[in-house]
Computed example of a mutant assay.
Amino acid sequence: MTADLFDGLETAGADREQLAPGAVILRGFARPHETELIAAIGAITAQAPFRRMVTPGGHQMSVAMTNCGSLGWVTDRSGYRYDPVDPESGKPWPPMPPLFRELAEQAATDAGFPRFAPDACLINRYEPGAKMSLHQDRDERDIGAPIVSVSLGLPATFLFGGLKRTDKTQRYRLVHGDIVVWGGPARLAFHGVAPLPDGEHGLLGRQRVNLTFRRAR
């Protein structure tokens, strides 16, 4: 990928929607690269297939997951953590494609967080009815770096709250190509995804795929 691609993306003018200080939705930011992103996801999941992980409490998650990058987020009965090795294959996670890294870096810069260098990308697959309960992303050593979250496929309702679970939660509709970035004062905001409604997306069918970029180490 060349800088010219992202220069063109910037001049196309993604709409910005402020969620809170340090948090923004970049509407349609990833859409110009949808074909390459979906192809890259296919290559990654051929090496490290989606799986529904188990929480420390023994509950199987409704969202299927995999990873790419030097570290991958995993959960099992021993806890939440980042691991360089896929526990199912015993091999390192697939490398992060340059397209992924550059898109995440550019989105972070556009949202006010320059020099973002992600080392982990969690890939979530939501099928109708799947959800993500309110939580904080706090397993990373470097919470000074933002979170960059790319939505592909079916629309979803993103829940975004405050620094306490009891804080009021706002609801935002995310569609194919939207990117949410949050960091700074919003870095530890509680967030989640409401149960995914059924539908059919022209490129991904009856699913939503979410790429979450983090600086884990």
Results as ranks from 00 to 15, higher is better:
Gly90Phe: 09
Glu102Arg: 15
Glu102Pro: 07
Asp76Gly: 05
Ile123Trp: 01
Thr75Glu: 00
Met65Cys: 01
Lys91Pro: 02
Cys121Lys: 08
Trp93Asp: 01
Arg52Pro: 00
Cys121Pro: 04
Ser70Phe: 04
Thr109Val: 07
Tyr82Asp: 00
Ala107Cys: 09
Glu88Gln: 13
Lys91Trp: 04
Asn67Asp: 03
Arg52His: 06
Met61Thr: 06
Val74Asn: 06
Glu105Val: 15
Cys68Gln: 12
Leu122Phe: 00
Thr66Ile: 06
Ala117Asn: 14
Gly79Asn: 13
Phe100Ser: 00
Gly57Thr: 15
Val63Asn: 11
Val74Phe: 14
Phe116Cys: 06
Leu99Thr: 02
Leu122Asp: 04
Arg51Glu: 05
Glu102Tyr: 10
Pro92Thr: 07
Thr66Tyr: 02
Leu103Asp: 02
Gly69Leu: 07
Ala64Tyr: 10
Thr66Lys: 07
Gly79Leu: 12
Asp110Ser: 06
Pro95Lys: 15
Ser62Met: 01
Ala64His: 07
Met96Asn: 01
Asp76Ala: 12
Pro118Ile: 08
Ser78Val: 06
Pro56Ile: 14
Thr66Leu: 02
Gln106Ala: 03
Thr109Ile: 06
Ser62Glu: 01
Trp73Tyr: 08
Gly112Ser: 03
Ser89Asn: 09
Leu71Ile: 10
Cys68Lys: 11
Gly72Arg: 14
Glu88Phe: 14
Met65Lys: 02
Pro97Thr: 03
Glu88Ala: 15
Ala111Asp: 03
Val54Glu: 03
Gly79Gln: 12
Leu122Tyr: 05
Gly58Asn: 11
Asp86His: 15
Gly79Glu: 10
Pro95Gln: 13
Tyr80Ala: 04
Pro56Ser: 12
Ala120Asn: 15
Pro95Leu: 09
Pro97Met: 08
Arg52Val: 03
Gly72Trp: 08
Ala111Asn: 05
Ala64Pro: 02
Ala64Glu: 09
Ala108Cys: 07
Pro98Asn: 04
Asp110Pro: 00
Pro114Gly: 02
Gln60Cys: 12
Thr66Pro: 01
Phe116Lys: 02
Glu88Pro: 11
Met53Asp: 13
Phe100Asn: 00
Phe100Asp: 02
